[in-house]
Design a binder for these strands. Structure first.
Lengths: 355, 355
DNA sequence: CTGAAAGCGCTTACAG
DNA sequence: CTGAAAGCGCTTACAG
């Protein structure tokens, strides 16, 4: 009994038909009689036939694999991105090859090169400031702030900021401290812009950039939040849950009650946001949708290339008309301004937190 | 001018030699004269030759790709694992295809199937309780607690627990609360066993399982740590940084000073452990080494299969003699028992925290 | 040291 | 509706 991996020709021999017919039957392409299709399907299943991707790839020129290029897998947002892309790609029948540049811009080019060598049909790139993607000889979808020109798909970070700002304004916050990591980030600038807009004219804001604080105070230095709160800040709106966590524990560690004395909010709904006390109010981006759009655009371009030959080669896969994917406000604690005698001040904490 | 992707035959034509010679020269296999090798190398580079993985895969039967099977990408430990595996695989000349089963055990089989269809040469599996990996028709390396029998590579979780327990004992802690997620986890049981051993006979311990607490109190329910501390617990040793974070904020939120009144420790050195106040003392596993061992074992088996033919087919890649990879204690705050009048009680907090 | 030839497993016009 | 044949790009014995 032949125990080797069954191939197309074995099915053909078993049934006494040609490999062409088997191929056509299995792919549903050629006109094969329904009965034959059925018999071929049955024996293929019986033999445990698994098509050879190598054979198919060599013949068709497509690998059926998409590359996912990440500036740094250690980035806490990565799991969401990877999961969403993997899911969208698998649904579209593609595999996902990962390439990590471990935080170094220079390695990104190299990582992209590795993917090209592996014959990916297209790739999703999560860029870092300074990334150049000219070198890609395949369709590319970029996930980033829409401020970036080109073939980009992104959540609407500005609108997310505006919603968060509006939420804080409604709760009565008029003196808000904004904390971001780096002013060089388009995403963070969008969020800041939205936050200020949402808070409105009546609010006083100050912006802290961790990058700058740490340049002076060293990595992990205190953010000096206690004094800010003492001097009147009632809400700390951070641009990422990681910063929110840092702020939360710095405040709590100094004996300042959150959310009773000051409110802390973040962005991204990272895993720990729901397990800390109090749960962090945050802004979740719809990564599923972002991933679906990116993968669909890639697949469309790949298909078009296949049909259209060399014609529309390295055009970006995402048209300029791509809608910005909305974000969703996740309220885990929401506290009105304390001690200001405002009648509309509210103070409630969500009881049920997801684990 | 021909702009299409150059292949082996184009180099051969350009130089007026045979494709066999070009192939041999580029791979360094056959005996080709040094000068010819040099010329071939040069024109290959000049033409921007990139070998076709499909052609090679079809011919050799190897895809040059390893699969990484994860129970849930959302798991906070995933970035470390993925980064380490990607790095080890890339160094060995392999690509990494990811497969996520999104937390559902049933999907793991399906995910493994997708990888097989894609022709991976081997795979690294991070199992979930209940995972069966019999279905794999390629070499498999499993990353898990060494308690699991089979072809496993893992950090020495028990020893890590013992070190952490010893650390706490030296600081004078004699009444320690242990918190894990689920008693069904081998890894967690190893860590618990090590912790108890490290704390020694003189210590009183109680173990809390979050899974059980939440079955009664609902997801995200308070852990009741305040009472534990009031009744004499001086250290909370958790089995993961995620739990440590939950404990830390629950205590701080209730006005209990950490680490002055109670010490909190974790496991895994997840990203936020260094940014919270106080920084979490934790146990880091050497994922780089775990990944290197797993990938090396896989590659060895793949190579052996190639040479030895069908002989030692689906043997596990990891011999029984694999050393357990050590863990490393990361001390970010370490506080002796407060208010117990012990002369050896220490109280210091690390100043420098990595961001 | 170099080359001619076969073949990995598939798909795709094309002919019947 | 079905089949014979070519060819995707590479590597590997084998012959010279």
């Amino acid at each position: 009994m032949d125990r080797s991996k069954p191939k197309l020709s074995r099915i053909a021999e078993t049934l006494g038909v040609s490999v062409a017919t088997v191929s056509n039957a299995l792919s549903g392409k050629g006109r094969v009689s329904p009965e034959l299709v059925e018999r071929i399907r049955a024996t293929a299943a019986e033999l445990g036939y698994v098509p050879s991707v190598a054979g198919r790839a060599l013949r068709t020129g497509r690998s059926g694999v998409l590359g996912l290029v990440l500036p740094d897998i250690a980035n806490p947002l990565f799991p969401q991105i990877a999961q969403a892309i993997e899911h969208a790609a698998a649904s579209a029948g593609y595999g996902v090859l990962i390439a990590d540049s471990r935080g170094e811009t220079a390695m990104q080019t190299e990582a992209i090169g590795r993917l090209i060598e592996r014959g990916v049909d297209g790739m999703v790139v999560v860029p870092r400031r300074g990334t150049r993607i000219v070198e890609a000889s395949c369709p590319v979808a970029v996930i980033d702030s829409p401020s970036t020109p080109g073939n980009t798909v992104a959540a609407d970070h500005w609108e997310g900021g505006r919603q968060m700002g509006g939420h804080l304004r409604e709760l009565g916050h008029r003196n808000v401290l904004l904390i971001g990591h780096s002013p060089a980030s388009n995403v963070q600038n969008d969020r800041i812009g939205g936050l200020k807009s949402g808070l409105g004219r009546g609010a006083v804001t100050e912006t802290l950039w961790i990058e700058k604080l740490e340049a002076a105070g060293g990595a992990g230095c205190p953010l000096g939040l206690v004094e800010k709160v003492r001097s009147g800040v009632t809400a700390v709106a951070t641009l990422s849950d990681l910063i929110a966590l840092r702020a939360l524990t710095e405040l709590q560690g100094a004996g300042i009650a959150v959310p009773q004395a000051v409110s802390v909010s973040g962005f991204d709904d990272l895993i720990w946001s729901s397990v800390v006390t109090p749960g962090l109010t945050t802004m979740r981006m719809d990564m599923e949708t972002v991933a679906e759009i990116a993968v669909a655009a890639l697949v469309d371009t790949i298909e078009a290339e296949r049909r259209g030959g060399e014609e529309q080669k390295i055009l970006g896969p995402v048209s300029a008309a791509v809608p910005k994917v909305p974000m969703e406000l996740v309220i885990r604690h929401s506290t009105g301004v304390a001690g200001m005698g405002l009648s509309q001040a509210r103070n409630r904490t969500e009881g049920e937190l997801a684990s």
